[in-house]
Computed example of a mutant assay.
Amino acid sequence: MRHVVLFDLDGTLIDSGPIILASMKHASLAVLGREPDEELVRAAIGGPGLFAQMRDLDPDRVDELVEAYRLHNEPLHATLEGFDVLRLLPVLKDEGRRLGIVTAKRLRTVGLALDRFPELGEAMDVVIGAEDTERHKPEPDPVLEALRRLDASPADAAYVGDSPFDIHAGNAAGVFTVAVGWGGIHPDERLLHAGPDALVHTAEELHGVL
């Protein structure tokens, strides 16, 4: 049994894929006057963060794109829905596990999700956001920082995520990696190509591999 279970946020705990795509489209249209390539946008979600994604759209207008994205995206957090996996969190806590969130989102935006789902914040022993490490997923630094704060070893931990970036980060950190297929952004084939220790499609399957 893994005594520490770390989760990605977007597409893993909360169904934020639709609002991310909508806000990326809005920012590109508002600032650049064109729609982005949706497949390229999808492929980058869950990676090294918003600034890197906007740099791919236009390296000369990153700040404008980020501002347009955030103005559009932050109010949409009030409409967020959680995935079924949220009901697994109290079960894991009752089993004595320590839980954490490891995300590329800045902590202010993470706070919007935690406001929407108070039970999510209450379940977490650590939250790692964009400000907490210099390097971001797919580098292992955010996962390792969570373990450092929990005084836990990689051998005793799992990282659960919906993107190849999550799996690469977890593998590089030496933890047990679980890809979830319910995020709606990255197809199973892309997740499997990243080399997770397990791929699951339900909360029950996740509980089983942990």
Rank of each mutant, 00 (worst) to 15 (best):
Y159R: 00
V126L: 00
F117E: 07
L120C: 07
E134Q: 13
L99V: 04
R108H: 14
T103I: 06
R135W: 05
K137I: 09
P138Q: 07
D151W: 09
H136G: 00
P154H: 05
G121A: 10
P164D: 12
E131R: 04
E119G: 15
A158F: 00
V127C: 07
S163A: 14
F165W: 14
R116P: 07
E134D: 13
G129A: 00
L144P: 11
P154G: 07
K137F: 12
H168K: 13
D115W: 12
V126W: 02
L150P: 01
D125Y: 01
E119Q: 14
A113S: 15
R98W: 01
V102Q: 09
R116I: 01
P140N: 10
P142W: 12
E122L: 15
P164R: 03
D132R: 08
K137G: 03
F117Y: 12
H168P: 00
L112C: 01
L114D: 07
K105L: 06
G129K: 01
G170I: 10
G96D: 00
T103P: 04
V110P: 02
V143C: 06
A104E: 10
A123Y: 11
L114F: 14
M124W: 10
V160M: 00
R106L: 01
E134N: 05
V110R: 05
R149D: 04
T103W: 06
G170F: 06
K105H: 05
V110M: 02
S163K: 06
A130R: 13
R149Y: 04
R116F: 07
T133Y: 07
A146M: 07
A146F: 03
G96F: 00
R108G: 09
E145R: 14
L114Y: 12
D115E: 15
V102G: 10
S163L: 09
E131M: 04
D156C: 12
V127P: 04
D166Q: 03
D125G: 09
E139F: 15
L99W: 06
S153E: 14
D132W: 03
H168D: 11
T133L: 10
M124D: 04
E119W: 13
F117R: 11
P142H: 08
T109L: 15
A130I: 01
A158R: 02
R149Q: 08
A130D: 12
G96P: 00
P154A: 05
T109V: 15
L147C: 06
E145I: 12
R149I: 11
H136C: 00
L144V: 14
L147Y: 09
G100W: 02
E134A: 14
D132T: 09
A146V: 10
G170C: 06
E122R: 15
D141K: 08
R135S: 10
A155G: 15
A130Y: 10
A157Q: 05
R135N: 12
L147P: 04
K105I: 05
G100Y: 01
V110W: 02
R148L: 12
D151Y: 06
G129P: 03
A157P: 05
A155Y: 13
R97T: 07
R97V: 09
E122P: 04
F117V: 06
D156F: 08
